[in-house]
Write a protein that binds this DNA or RNA. Structure first.
Lengths: 189, 189
DNA sequence: CTTGAAGTAGACAGGTCGGTCTATTTTTAA
DNA sequence: TTAAAAATAGACCGACCTGTCTACTTCAAG
């Protein structure tokens, strides 16, 4: 793996569980077993490590979601699969995503509220990427681009809402409820 | 107002904008113009001040939302008004809620992920309170309690999703898009 | 006028923060 | 085998952290 990746993995795990400003560089070093100078050979500052952790989470999450959706026929079934996938995530059945502590990107934007900050921008880019994935599948079952965008938007909001409800209120069935709503929205097509 | 409220107001403003762990007690003291000992006369620790800030935000936000919804006839119109209200919030037209930095409760849960932590619990209680408000109005236009709960849940998810989209992606029209979706969901009733 | 509560200013304590530096050891490749 | 590169441990820096303590001031109620 290499020390660089060890640092990113450990940092991501700690940042995700406790928040970024609550975790010091020394804790990342101790838990990863890497020396301080090695960290600063790979990253010029804590902020750069944060950026790398966000980028890594983006890759992990997006690839997981995309492959889950690709396991089903494009369009309606893939879109429904998204809700089953996040349901598994909420209920800690996806080890690669760690234990569920809400959405890392939402949480991180709570700590980096300035939309011009590189960390915030990376979080925004992740969400946009997921939205484009939904839009791609929505196009399969919609008669116009406008309809597809509206459907993708609706599904996106339901998914984000479910993440929030699952994390803040501890509602482990939030994804299934969102799926039921989404199902009703698509079926009349 | 009194020093205690000065501290809560200042703490809430700073916590909301920058996150809780990024703000030190000394900064709250400096910006509020209160002495350190006075803070520790009113609050036994920073955590208690955080709790008070969350409680205050709950009061501010809920009273604002409820009064906005009460300005319209109960039921469908009040529910639609919710989306107009949060639209104003996203676009910084609600001074009492400060400039928009996403949902303080969502952001705070990102920093206090343990669901047993008092701060997390207060955030969850806030969301539940809002949900109950939606349910109350949903009951006005639904034929069964089950239907009302499902409608309230759908509207809740759309609203939470819109908050996330507005904050993370900077989509200032997220509330209006959510409203359009909600409108289509209610009209067939 | 006095007494006591509340607030102020600021030093202080022990610890952690991000980050730099040195000196040593391990690893890698020529 | 040897020289360069990478990683190590850990001291060190100045700043900041939460929280305590002391000494002084403000001010209202009796």
């Amino acid at each position: 793996m290499g020390r660089r990746q060890d640092l990113i993995d450990t940092a991501l795990r700690l940042f995700y569980e406790h928040g970024i400003h609550a975790i010091g560089i020394n804790q990342v070093l101790q838990e990863s077993g890497v020396a301080k100078q090695t960290l600063y050979n790979h990253f010029e500052s804590k902020d750069k490590l944060v950026e790398a952790a966000v980028e890594h989470r983006d890759k992990l999450f997006f690839q997981w979601l995309e492959s889950r959706m690709n396991s089903r026929p494009a369009g309606r079934e893939a879109l429904m699969e998204m809700f089953d996938a996040v349901h598994d995530w909420f209920n800690n059945r996806v080890p690669t995503l760690h234990r569920f502590y809400g959405c890392f990107f939402i949480n991180t934007c709570g700590e980096y509220s300035d939309p011009e900050h590189p960390v915030h921008k990376r979080c925004a880019a992740h969400k946009t990427r997921v939205f484009e994935l939904l839009k791609r599948h929505s196009l399969e079952i919609c008669t116009s681009v406008t309809d597809a965008e509206e459907l993708a938007n609706a599904l996106f909001l339901l998914k984000e809402g479910a993440i929030v409800k699952a994390h803040v209120e501890g509602d482990l069935d939030a994804a299934l409820k969102a799926k039921a709503i989404a199902s009703r929205m698509i079926s009349p097509h």
